[in-house]
Design a protein around this nucleic acid. Structure first.
Lengths: 357, 357
DNA sequence: TTTAGCACTCCTTAACTTCGAGTGCTAAGC
DNA sequence: GCTTAGCACTCGAAGTTAAGGAGTGCTAAA
């Protein structure tokens, strides 16, 4: 059942006032805020109706109204006015978000999001199913070499290997050729032990070099496929009235500090533009009375990521969504595949990172 | 002026009781705890003396006693009984701490420290002055290549570079040779623009390839020299009675979340075994009513690092120091040049802060 | 020097009060 | 039928007072 225009106006007023003050909103305040041509008494009647329909609730009899998750949902879907960023804000974001490795960019973006929204920010990035594009072995001495893997998404991974037995540079060259020929373009689950065995025979490796290298390849593909996730600005929660209870804050911060939990948020498959999860809409128990706003970006080459913030359900969704969307847009632009050619010299388009594994 | 035996016993009892309960300690409790052959009245007289000498204080008249920073300092320096780890504890640490990259090990060690002490753990690692040991360029296509640097400390760094102009594999080979010849073994401040220019001439590079690469080398040496720092388990503070005030907790967590602040802790140059900084002994204002316990490890090749925890001044210094010392010993063992077994491993030696206050 | 005795201090907790914002309801007005 | 003024009522927030108790400092005697 569709709400009347007036009810919508009232609901909007309640939500917006509550977002600002964190105090239950009374009929008189609504009247002023919504600039309605009717008395507080009339508004009280409407409030009762909105209450019955589940959009609002009272902390206790004879207190003002507070939006429910359903109320926020309607607000976000229909009532919210689009918030555009000010020139200052976009400029600040552009300023902070220039180049660097994928990791650095994500960290900067997270800090930026925290700074702009004053909520904890989280970033998650995941290659859908990474594969090796290019494979190299760098010979150092008879017992050591470096493995360098170029993955889809232009991520570079490396590992320094010391072995208790010796080998020749030539062996490494052959191994490198074999791996480039047979292990590129494969996702982790496509690599079988048969393949490793046949590679071993192809180079005549009797010492297990092949399996050391294959092990690293598999490990890298697995861990890169798993998302890289991090949080920043958790401490900001403590300033919010809804987290004055240290226990409550502890539970949430603790939950956020486990990257595993963050990756779970990617579970939601629809990488749309901005996604808002309000209170109980969150799968995780720990997030049930908080809200999460997520914006996704596309780094090209199968790499996708999320940047988001976690805050109380009482959140300025409009402003937060606008900011995150803008940041995510910047990330897509900076990381995305369709990268425009660099402007001039010294302004290089540089991808990849300093990953040491 | 040296304290009498009895006063020391009393001080120890107060400190240890307060560590356990977080409540001011009364004369009667001291009597029981210290198993002294005198009445509470006698102990009260002694408490007054310890109070006057600055080892104890009262939150208010007619409350029990609480140790001052000076009291804790004496306790840590002289009164504390060495705590040895249980087999379970050492086993748990050995279990968690096996291999992996330096970063992974540090992260594991931090988590371990948080888990064992239930305080936030911090890790800081720094290469004294890293240099490049080996230099490689991997040709990908006419516009892209990967730079791979092997640094002292066996850290490998890489970067994928896309350029708006093209070059040949041969050019890269020559560049690689030149860099290996003239840029290895140099600390960041030894690299001059003259050197870069002459390298440029040597390969006949007119496009600025050389300066791109040199830029990365310098950037890498600079950022690796700067310490890598991180914290984990900040949320644990919120469970402590001294951080029930969200504002206080906020200030500290915020302070810890800036890696720059953590690196500052390395400032203290004496990498001894274990270092305890009690309350006002800390330089940072934000740490003035907390304590920090730091253990250092040596990863060989000029790499050194710290692992520590931050907690209330009311901290079980003995247990914390033992645990950190053991973890740091493990790190030295796993990361160290493999050569000498870390001296005094498992043995507890505490170097203190200043004797003022 | 030690200790029993005792008055005193001051925090903690709980019960009770006041205050006021905001409600729901009723009845009158448009 | 919708709106609105009026009014009694509810209930938390904030302040006040009172009781309880842990622990002290002091004094005087052993």
């Amino acid at each position: 059942m569709e709400l009347t225009e007036r009810k919508k106006k009232i609901l909007r007023a309640v939500v917006e006032e509550y977002i600002n003050t964190a105090e239950p909103v009374g009929s008189k305040t609504v009247q002023q805020r919504a600039a309605l041509d009717c008395s507080p008494a009339t508004i009280r009647n409407e409030l009762v109706a909105l209450d019955k329909e589940g959009y609002l609730e009272q902390p206790h009899t004879s207190a003002g109204r507070v939006p429910t998750a359903k109320g926020y949902r309607l607000y976000v879907n229909e009532l919210m006015r689009e918030r555009r960023l000010s020139a200052d804000e976009t400029e600040a974001i552009n300023e902070k978000l220039r180049g660097g490795s994928h990791e650095k960019l994500m960290a900067d973006a997270g800090r930026m999001a925290t700074e702009l929204t004053s909520y904890p920010a989280l970033t998650v990035s995941a290659a859908a199913s990474p594969t090796v594009k290019r494979f190299d072995l760098i010979y150092l001495d008879p017992n050591s070499f470096i493995i360098v893997l170029l993955l889809t998404g232009d991520t570079v991974k490396n590992k320094l290997v010391h072995l208790p037995f010796s080998f020749t540079e030539n062996t490494l060259k052959r191994l490198s050729a074999v791996f480039n020929a047979s292990f590129t373009g494969l996702t982790e689950n496509k690599i079988t032990s048969d393949m490793i065995n046949s590679a071993e025979r192809a180079v005549g490796d009797t010492m297990g070099l092949t399996s050391v290298i294959a092990g690293f390849v598999i490990e890298t593909l697995t861990s890169s496929g798993g998302a890289g996730a991090s949080v920043s600005g958790e401490a900001n929660l403590l300033k919010l009235p809804e987290f004055q209870d240290p226990d409550k804050a502890h539970r949430l911060i603790n939950y956020l500090s486990d990257p595993h939990n963050l990756s779970a948020l990617t579970g939601s498959p629809d990488f749309g533009d901005v996604k808002v999860l309000i209170g109980p809409e969150n799968a995780a128990l720990e997030l049930r009375d908080s809200s999460v706003v997520l914006a996704s970006y596309d780094a090209g080459d199968g790499m996708r990521g999320l940047i988001g913030v976690v805050g109380p359900t009482r959140m300025d969704y409009s402003a937060v969504a606008a900011k995150l969307s803008y940041i995510a847009g910047g990330l897509s632009r900076l990381l995305g595949a369709g990268s425009a050619p660099p402007a001039g010299f010294g302004k290089l388009m540089i991808k990849g990172g300093h990953d040491d594994v």
